[in-house]
């Protein structure tokens, strides 16, 4: 019991209004049965492989050490892979946050047929994720047969390789990821907006709040946990980038590096260099980054304050 209480905030919380009636033992036993299937999967698909990655990454020629980390960090592509992700996030995240919140508020303030039709249009692209979305974007980006070939002509691009130059890839990926992700996040943020009780909104209207003030002072604070969550998962997704740069490298004949993202570098070490130690070290580095980011956003977005 004490171990689980360490994470409790130091601020004194009001005592629960009611103590529970049942015996603590039955509640714990019931909970154990209910969480058991998930915990089993957690162990098999989460904890064992995480432990395995840690052990693998720390295995050195003699005993344990940081040789694997030295090897992967010393790779001449290591810094570049993170720089690529950083640039992509820099373009993608602002578009994503502003776009999704903006569209959600617009959809929310359009009850009836028009709003639901629009929402449907926005989330259709979510059906194309990963390879399917990439295929669609090959069609858009390839000047010869693109529906927006006038745009590429305007830039003077006539081949895919001219459009998909390395310097432009962060922008292309940001567009791809916004296109495939916006609708799904819209559903989530919209669910949060729909959860706001009518009384709260009516009270705000009575107080004379206009639509902008209402969105800014009432709705955004209420859906803030969802927005924090969205930011959190999108940053994590950014570090996961794999399939898009992988296939982009393939279709541009290596103009985009086959080791463009950290995961691609890790994959190269695991399956081409056959150096699982270095690949595991990269996994652990990515794991630590996402844990750090996750903790930071979780603690700041109030997602953990569950005592409602």
């Amino acid at each position: 019991m004490t171990a689980t209480m360490i994470g409790e905030p130091a601020i004194a919380r009001p005592a629960p209004r009611r103590r529970r009636f049942g015996l603590p033992g039955t509640e714990s036993r019931g909970a154990a049965i209910l969480v058991m299937p998930f915990v089993l999967l957690l162990i098999v698909a989460g904890i064992i492989p995480t432990g395995y990655a840690l052990i693998q990454s720390l295995q050195a020629a003699q005993g344990f050490g940081f040789d694997n980390f030295a090897r992967i960090v010393g790779d001449f592509r290591f810094v570049d892979t993170f720089l690529h992700i950083f640039l992509t996030l820099l373009v993608w995240l602002p578009i994503m946050m502003v776009g999704v919140v903006g569209l959600s508020l617009l959809v929310y303030s359009s009850p009836g047929r028009f709003g639901s039709t629009m929402r449907f249009f926005y989330y259709i692209p979510g059906a194309l994720a990963g390879v399917a979305n990439f295929m669609l974007w090959l069609f858009i980006l390839n000047p010869g047969q693109s529906p927006i070939d006038f745009l590429w002509n305007g830039f003077g691009f006539t081949t895919l390789n001219q459009v998909a130059q390395p310097g432009q890839l962060p922008i292309i990926l940001a567009a791809m990821l916004f296109f495939q992700g916006a609708g799904t996040w819209l559903v989530i943020v919209n669910g949060g907006l729909n959860g706001i009780p009518d009384e709260v909104l009516e009270a705000a209207v009575v107080d004379g709040a206009g639509p902008v003030a209402m969105a800014w002072t009432i709705m955004l604070p209420i859906i803030r946990p969802w927005l924090g969550y969205m930011l959190l998962l999108n940053v994590a997704y950014g570090f996961q980038l794999f399939i898009e740069p992988l296939v982009m490298s393939q279709v541009t004949h290596g103009q985009i590096s086959p080791q463009w993202s950290p995961n691609q570098l890790s994959y190269t070490y695991a399956y081409q260099i056959l150096d699982t130690g270095a690949a595991a070290a990269m996994s652990v580095i990515l794991l630590l980054i996402s844990l750090g980011l996750g903790l930071w956003i979780v603690l700041r977005s109030g997602l953990f304050s569950d005592e409602r």
Binding site: A3, T4, M5, G7, E8, A31, V35, V39, L42, A45, G46, I48, P49, T50, Y52, A53, Q56, L232, L233, A236, Y237, F239, Q240, F242, N263, S266, Y267, A270, T276, A279, A280, S283, L286, L287, S290, L291, L293, G294, L295, V298, L303, F304, D306
Partner: peptide, 22 residues
């Protein structure tokens, strides 16, 4: 309970590709 919720959130946040090789 708190530990499980915490681990659930962290595993949810972790890129699932991190674990693909292990």
């Amino acid at each position: 309970r708190r530990v499980l919720r915490f681990i659930t959130l962290l595993t949810m946040v972790m890129p699932n590709t991190v674990l693909v090789i292990p």
